[in-house]
Design a protein around this nucleic acid. Sequence first.
DNA 1: CCCATTTTGTTCTCACGTTCACAAACTCCT
DNA 2: AGGAGTTTGTGAACGTGAGAACAAAATGGG
Lengths: 240, 240
Amino acid sequence: MTTRSSTDAARVIPEATVARLPVYLRALTALADDGIRTCSSEDLATAAGVNSAKLRKDLSYLGSYGTRGVGYDVDYLRYQIAREIGVTQDWPVVIVGIGNLGHALANYSGFRSRGFRVVALLDANELVVGQTVAGVVVRPFDDLEEIVHEHDVAIGVIATPAVAAQDVADRMVAIGITSILNFAPAVVAVPEGVDVRKVDLSIELQILAYHEQRKANGHEPIPAGAAVDGTADAAGGGAA
Amino acid sequence: MTTRSSTDAARVIPEATVARLPVYLRALTALADDGIRTCSSEDLATAAGVNSAKLRKDLSYLGSYGTRGVGYDVDYLRYQIAREIGVTQDWPVVIVGIGNLGHALANYSGFRSRGFRVVALLDANELVVGQTVAGVVVRPFDDLEEIVHEHDVAIGVIATPAVAAQDVADRMVAIGITSILNFAPAVVAVPEGVDVRKVDLSIELQILAYHEQRKANGHEPIPAGAAVDGTADAAGGGAA
DNA sequence: CCCATTTTGTTCTCACGTTCACAAACTCCT
DNA sequence: AGGAGTTTGTGAACGTGAGAACAAAATGGG
């Protein structure tokens, strides 16, 4: 733990960069699937939908994995990013709340292909318990502790209705889960040291609606570069 | 709507603020449901999971809707935010790609309750066309233009596999859709003036995995106030 | 072998977003 | 009425992120 050696010099990767690494990873996978073995920062930036200067800066936080005058080896860079994110290892995940969204998540192939293994589906509704979803039998929510300990689960996904979200989160935290992905349309409070990320479908639509309304009202005579399109990103995680 | 001269002074709301307005809106709705008629910025900030100073600053971009020494009238503020976002009006939406995720989206009640009306479900797969999902019959993708013009649709949702996403987006843009919510794990490029927001389920998990790996490696002796919960945003516009 | 070309890694500057801190404005109590 | 107590709205300090620009390192041609 305390053997932080030489490579540990600038081991602080900005949150905004962390959020983009998975995008680069996917872009590299797409390039590799096309048989491309080497790419420039310009190529990769285009594939990832970002500015090439930003891409190079992001990669520089990981180390110097490129070759000047040449570019990046696709497979090598892909491995380095995957290792940095942690998706070279296997992450057991539990999903709580098997409604419409839980169904979709359980069936989502993108999880498994990126190192996430759904080890259990849980629901508090006894009508749902026992059903087979995505080849897995739904178990009662009270089995959470047993499952988490058995598989050493660190990541939990909440796909319950809003009212249940805080209770589920509390239970998860009490049992030892330290990362939560929350799809319920509710704010969940967690103690320090626990990460929560929130995905809210209707919020995204509302943000689009805001800009749409703006366009319709002709409120932007000339975007003046600061408009809605372009590479305008909203930034990442808040603080505890 | 036309005579907005005086209040029109500083009508530029920062993108980060726009992304939080829907959160405030939901928090206010929750307070109203609890019968609370007035709240302080501290109360609302707690309910929304943000810092009260940030909340006040965000609200100040909309106008002065509070009363010093008292706080905010819940219903009044709720209406003002809803109006600013644009969810007081009705937004017709089409969903393209009725797989697992499309199913879940079609059934998601949070859309309708916030002013979004799903006017059509579309799919290119003829095995899916004709099925009834969420009380709506799935129509062939080629009906897109007819539907968009008939209902004056401005917002499209892409829930297709990654390979189809760019084609669907191109078609949407050609027909006149100017806001796209993309659930496909792919970067879609759109011309200037079109907004794209991306929601990627596996990217969120990968970000959690990164921090989880950090914790496990004891890389963060003391997080220094940098615990990573809070509201996670995916980024905004596509490039030209 | 040397030089032109390519492309990375990094530095610098600017813009944006967050947080603090406090004056202004309002209520309530005496 | 006046002062004590609240709470908003905002100006200013601070930190983070984005993009331009360039030096350093590699290749390839003559």
